[in-house]
Design a protein around this nucleic acid. Structure first.
Lengths: 137, 137
DNA sequence: ATTAAATACTATCTTAAAGTAGTATTTTGC
DNA sequence: GCAAAATACTACTTTAAGATAGTATTTAAT
């Protein structure tokens, strides 16, 4: 699989938030816990807010809160928002016309496994990240 | 999964070769069939030769031939040679200390699927790409 | 009102993958 | 021996992701 670093960051941030008692999270706070480059995280937070996952509270005492219930945020939606899912749905050999009807030599061996990953990301929500029990983030 | 383009190219080239009647392949010939940038393919061929998968025959009437039996070339070896497999064995969230003992919140859901992909690539050889039947490359 | 503490914006830098260009070298056929 | 047809080598360019820097804006506490 290997997501982009930006997707990894996004999942780690939102996963961290859902597993915390806190309600409001400042960028500074997230940076100290998640070890993501400060300015990069800030830009990503703005992006996640634009995409409706979180809401930003400006000014002093501000920060970020979830904009909707975590049970409604699917992991694939997060990835799709920050880098797009297209590259993960494609052929392992990079052929753009590879399909069940016109399979590449790896298609029948690979497609079922690929679909398991896609189903997992489509099915799991941020809330699941909580109930699955986090050991560390 | 999403391999690097270079890995995709390598697999397509070697997969094309194993599925052909020909024995010797010139870069020119491969380019016309596989639509990979000419100079990029040539450099990759030299690299694959250095890694012992193919053997280059210089001079007029030259080209590339397999350097060993295709049943001994595992797909993971090819990928490992051109870009390394490390990034694919890691955690979905990019945590470097994620493991069965110290799992991230996605570990137990994701690791089994990831291992299926890794096993597939470790198990399949170029020869399998032939017997699996190629519809198109 | 002013200050402190937060986010937002804009522009730039860095790095690695991908792609391109030109020249040198090797070998066979004639 | 020489030309043709092939690979090898070296250097440069492009592109996108990732990271950084500086400034502007917003808001609450005092």
């Amino acid at each position: 699989m290997k997501l982009s670093k930006t997707s990894e960051y996004a999942l780690r941030i939102l996963g961290f938030m859902i597993n915390s008692e806190k309600q409001v999270f400042t960028a500074r706070y997230l940076v100290t816990y998640l070890h993501i480059p400060d300015k990069y995280l800030r830009r990503l937070m703005t992006d996640l807010a634009r995409n409706g996952f979180i809401k930003s509270i400006q000014g002093r005492e501000g920060g970020y809160v979830f904009a909707k219930n975590a049970t409604t945020i699917h992991l694939s939606e997060i990835i799709d928002a920050v880098e797009g899912m297209d590259k993960y749905t494609g052929c392992l050999l990079g052929l753009n016309n590879c399909s069940d009807d016109s399979p590449c030599s790896l298609h029948y061996a690979y497609a079922p496994i690929r679909n398991q990953v896609l189903n997992l990301l489509d099915t799991l929500t941020l809330a699941d990240l909580k109930s699955l029990k986090i050991k560390r983030f």
